[in-house]
Design a protein around this nucleic acid. Structure first.
Lengths: 211, 211
DNA sequence: CACCTTTGGTAACAGATGTTACAAAGCATA
DNA sequence: TATGCTTTGTAACATCTGTTACCAAAGGTG
């Protein structure tokens, strides 16, 4: 049962009858790090409500080049999924579990009803859009206004935050994929950050000191 | 009166009673190129519905550096404004008229009622969010995956499209502000595009050949 | 231990972009 | 026409980022 976790993260948001419906129609999904939840071009039939863990949202261009857009944490949902569900259109993004995560999957049919039936659900969907929009703006800021060294440090800090661990277990190559650059560039800049005392490095383990 | 223009661009979207309310509560605003509609940090009291012309949406960082996010055209609205209105939060973006434009300004009080009252309005707001989200994703793609020469050409093409004129009246400096780079870089790349036969240049006038 | 794979370090170079400085061309107006 | 401002062209250089190549260190496995 996921009643407790649901109560804890969404209880203050949703009115009791809606909570009951979520319990009735939603199904719990547990995923492990690296597991893919949504693929680009996929038609979405369920909307995810995150109970625990973190999901990373990625964008890919036609050459197959990737870029991390942002992380989604507990209490959040993927607003993109919502509009894809409602419109029956394809997903523009990829969603991959960053940590172990628990997710309630709500079928599209219910969602549509809830939009008309529950004011709190309507508000939740609108708030989600707004929050995701702000995240995207933040991503744009990062790309437009920051250089790679600052983007890297920010990425490490974000990653430490969503995992709740200042030790980051990732290879330089994996970080390079997230930031859409090359491994050599990441190694170079990590060394620079280490010299500046902002991180410390060991094989497969970066400790963020400057949180 | 703006009844005709409203019918033309929104008639197929909104149910008749809603159209009546928009006519009753909305006020028409005409703006000239360069005129500012929304400033960053401003509290928004009205939501704009664009009848004609184009609006450019800009982002600014704390150093005062600017970046063009995207253009909004007739039949569109600014979804960011909506959530700002509803939540009473401050605007994250600046809106500036790119061309002469006619806009219906709807007061926040009505909007809130319409969300509950009119299904077509609710759908319109959700669709707007989705559309703006896609625009922002596109902006991210541009920043992350394209080099400045391609960004520049794309910008000129976009600008030609929203103004409906392949002659662009802008200085190199103005273009540099939109793309967040320096005038010298723009001059250099424009010259390159001219040599490649994609544009032709005169003082204060760039003609886009490769549309 | 010997061997192999994965991961990280570094040099050397290429190309893209940003900066500074200055000159030339176009336009407006006295 | 003479003057001054705006706009554009270009050189020279600095810096950031991306690429290739190669080596070394760390860890796993027989």
């Amino acid at each position: 049962m996921f009643k407790e976790a649901l109560e804890q993260h969404y209880g203050f948001l949703f009115e009791p009858p809606l909570m009951k419906e979520i319990l009735a129609y939603g199904s719990l999904k547990k995923v492990a790090p690296g597991q893919q939840l949504i693929e680009i071009g996929e038609i979405i039939s369920h909307m995810p409500l995150l109970l625990s863990g973190a999901i990373k949202i990625m964008r890919e261009d036609d050459q197959g080049d990737e870029l991390l857009l942002y992380f989604i944490e507990k209490g959040d949902t993927c607003a993109m999924s919502f509009s894809c569900c409602m419109g029956g259109t394809k997903s523009d993004i990829r969603a991959v579990a960053e940590t172990d995560a628990e997710i309630i999957m709500v079928p599209v049919a219910q969602m549509e009803q809830w939009m008309a039936k529950y004011k709190t659900w309507q508000q939740f969907v609108l708030d989600s859009y707004h929050a995701r929009m702000k995240e995207l703006l933040h991503t744009v800021d990062t790309l437009a206004f920051l250089r790679m060294d600052d983007r890297l440090l920010k990425h490490l800090q974000d990653k430490a935050k969503v995992t709740g661990d200042d030790h980051i277990h990732a290879t330089h190559q994996e970080i390079a994929y997230d930031l859409h650059t090359s491994r050599v560039v990441i190694s170079r800049l990590l060394k620079k950050l280490e010299n500046e005392g902002k991180i410390s490095m060991h094989r497969n383990d970066i400790t963020v000191i400057d949180l």
